[in-house]
Design a protein around this nucleic acid. Structure first.
Lengths: 150, 150
DNA sequence: CTGCCTGCAAACTCTTTGCACGAAT
DNA sequence: ATTCGTGCAAAGAGTTTGCAGGCAG
């Protein structure tokens, strides 16, 4: 269970288990899709209305370092997050430019590529990310897309 | 010649050829490495000191749309740009977390991957980007790295 | 001439930070 | 009791935008 994983991580790092951190943790697990810091704040406040924006921003790095969340930057200003439930790394993101939806797709060659290329440059790879930007065929053909939100 | 390519693009779009836009264009071609909007502003001002920050920011999208520049976002707040001189797409970036240097590496499978994956989702790929973050072995082993700048 | 472009500065968005209070250990 | 954590609001970085005047076509 990942809640326990988070508490262990906090203890191990000498960090305190506060109600706010637990509320943010719960809120993160409640999200099914990718979410922003702001969306996480909204949800966390439903659990504990004392949670502030600052604490969300201070807790996000803790959760990514503990490998409970993965940070995804698609270059749109705000960063997205997603819990690492089943999948681990080796995931690419396909971003629909019409829907603004983010699809997670397996890309098993990424680690290999990162290692190979880094070695040639005298570097040690830390992470790699692959993102595909694309347009929605349904929207192009019919003028609408059921996924469209923003 | 890419200068002509840019002027054609402006004419074709009904945009005006101004001294400021030409100065920014020249400045962009004068850069050998990746550069930021701020660095481009500095260089452009040496050619035409009337160039303002606003115009640089308004001209950058025009240059990327005309495929003269490529935008690279490594998630560090500011965006980087590079002229598309020899290389086209199919390039991955390896970012050294110590040096902050960006290496451009060929990644010929990217287009294929983007197309394949997009097709399965009912999407039409527009672009793809692959970035590897890595640490410098030289810095780790000797404590210094000749590339280190910031 | 007409209307797109420009510089300036203010506005904006997302995120970070200083401070004094409050709570976990 | 100690510290670390917190909320608040202000600051910060990078980028965008409203406006009045300027220059390309």
């Amino acid at each position: 269970m990942q809640r326990q994983q988070f508490k262990s991580f906090l203890a191990q790092k000498g960090l305190r288990v506060t109600n706010q951190r637990l509320a943010i943790l719960e809120a993160a697990f409640g999200q099914q899709e990718h979410f922003t810091a702001e969306q996480l704040l909204d949800q966390a406040r439903r659990i504990d209305d004392s949670v502030s924006r600052a604490t969300v921003y201070r807790t996000l790095p803790i959760m990514t370092e503990s490998a409970i969340l993965r940070e995804i930057d698609i270059g749109t200003g705000e960063k997205f997050y997603r819990h690492t439930a089943n999948n681990q790394s080796q995931m690419a993101q396909v971003v629909c430019l019409d829907c603004d939806r983010i699809f997670e797709i397996s890309a098993p060659f990424m680690d290999w590529y990162g290692s190979t290329v880094s070695a040639k440059l005298g570097l040690t790879p830390v992470s790699q990310r692959l993102q595909v930007s694309a347009h929605c065929n349904t929207l192009r053909d019919t003028g609408t897309c059921r996924h469209r939100s923003r």
